[in-house]
Design a protein around this nucleic acid. Structure first.
Length: 115
RNA sequence: GGAGAAGAUCAGAUGAUCGCGGGCGGAUUUUUAUCCGCCGGAGGAAAGUCCGAGCUCCACAGGGCAGGAUGGUCGCUAACGGCGACUGGGGGCAACCCUAAGGAAAGUGCCACAGAAAAUAUACCGCCCCGCAUUUGCGAGGUAAGGGUGAAAUGGCGAGGUAAGAGCUCACCGCUUUUCCGGCGACGGAAAAGGCAUGGUAAACCCCAUCCGGAGCAAGACCAAAUAGGAGAACGUUUAAGGGCGGCCCGCCUGAUGUUCUCGGGUAGCGUCGCUUGAGGCGGCAGGCAACUGCCGUCCCAGAUGAAUGAUCAUCGUUGCGCCGAGGGUAACCGAAGCGCAAAACAGAACUCGGCUUACGAUCUUCUCUCGCG
RNA sequence: GGUCCCAUCGUCUAGCGGUUAGGACGCUGGCCUCUCACGCCGGUAACCGGGGUUCGAAUCCCCGUGGGACUA
């Protein structure tokens, strides 16, 4: 079993799940991202990404989604087990490199676990 | 060297590590799922959704009105509002570029302000003549050359002519009509006659010619079990509105309701199909000025669905700047190799094609003008 | 993904080929009042961008830009 893989089971895929997470989850924001955390009954940590059209053009949106997926894949230990996590992007994000995005997200999650 | 014009090509490459989605083959207990191997995985615009088609459903896609689109000619094409060649007009010194480019003597409308007058014409300042007065002035008439207004003023310019003038007459140019020649045609050229008639605006209504039925893959088709709505057939009742059908009319299809019998499928479900072999790409030959077409060979080249094609590192290559500087040159200057730093645009398939438009980084080829030197 | 609509002062709007681009709210100067409010007089400030048609464009046509709506 590959340790850093990102499978379909680890992805939030349907609309009803998203609705539950939006309604019941706990929110936490940084400068560029908003994270919503919510427990699930499957015992797997799952990732969902929401990038609206207000964030930018299609190329930029795709890049943000890839960066967030990459971060999840490499830093699964930061994410609490058995929880769904939805990462939303906020407005007016400058072009980011992977290291910048990773620093921002690491800070966000370490703050959360410290509480 | 500088300023331009036209066209073509590419869209950094290779490797390593960790990943993503698809196809084929195999394995783990069958599907789901997981693992292994192999194969391939964004664009010239994938974008805007501005046109045209295929495909699917709505009757078989029908008729009329309304509405919309196009508008030089000839061709190309499945089709087009696209493309090619040619013609007319406009711009540029030029290479070359732009062009909604039918009809204003079918009709209607509009042309502000200014100006006498903005389209049946007409006369402000003028000019000329006659009568009265006789120093300017007043009245009647002729005229449209000149002035003034305007975006635009009733052919232009010269000569004759006249009281002054006027296509009133004449030459040239323009215009209209007719004839001839060239061209498939748009149109071009020539001659003769007319004697100026016909201001502009159709991206104003409109007329003429040609074309268009409507919706869109969220179209549409299918699926295990369970329950009601529902569907079909027969019979009875009611005879008349409703629905399919995009605006309206016609036309076509379907009646409505009750009872009995028979049938079975609506659904946001990590569903299935549609879903990628196509007016396809590449190469060659032939036809054509070209757009394009025909024949032969060869290749299979993304199919996701909270939506894959990525991240990091290394090396090499490209470009720019700086340092150094072999070498060339009388000089200004041009500069190979090397080192360092920096940059690499616009942008992400969503049923599929053909165009158009817009965004944008380079490189190369051909051509034009100009400056300097020889 | 698809189908449509809109854009005028800071805000809400009128305008349908010739306007000094009008009005209301706002902001602001003055008058009134012992002062404030109300009222009266005045000022401020706009046609989303670029081409074209026309003598003339906010208006007509084309291409962009930015917003919004509907559709499972």
């Amino acid at each position: 079993m590959k340790a850093q893989a990102f499978r379909r089971a680890e992805k939030v895929t349907n609309k009803s799940s998203y609705r539950i997470i939006y309604e019941q989850g706990v929110r936490r924001s940084s400068r560029f991202f908003t994270v919503i955390l919510c427990g699930n009954s499957m015992g797997v940590r799952r990732l969902g990404i929401t990038v609206t059209k207000k964030t930018g053009k299609a190329v930029f949106r795709n890049r943000l989604k890839r960066l967030i997926r990459e971060f999840f894949r490499r830093n699964k230990d930061l994410f609490p087990a058995g929880h769904d996590v939805v990462v939303m992007t906020r407005k007016n994000i400058p072009p980011l490199t992977y290291s910048e995005a990773a620093r921002e997200l690491t800070e966000l999650f370490s703050r959360k676990t410290g509480r």
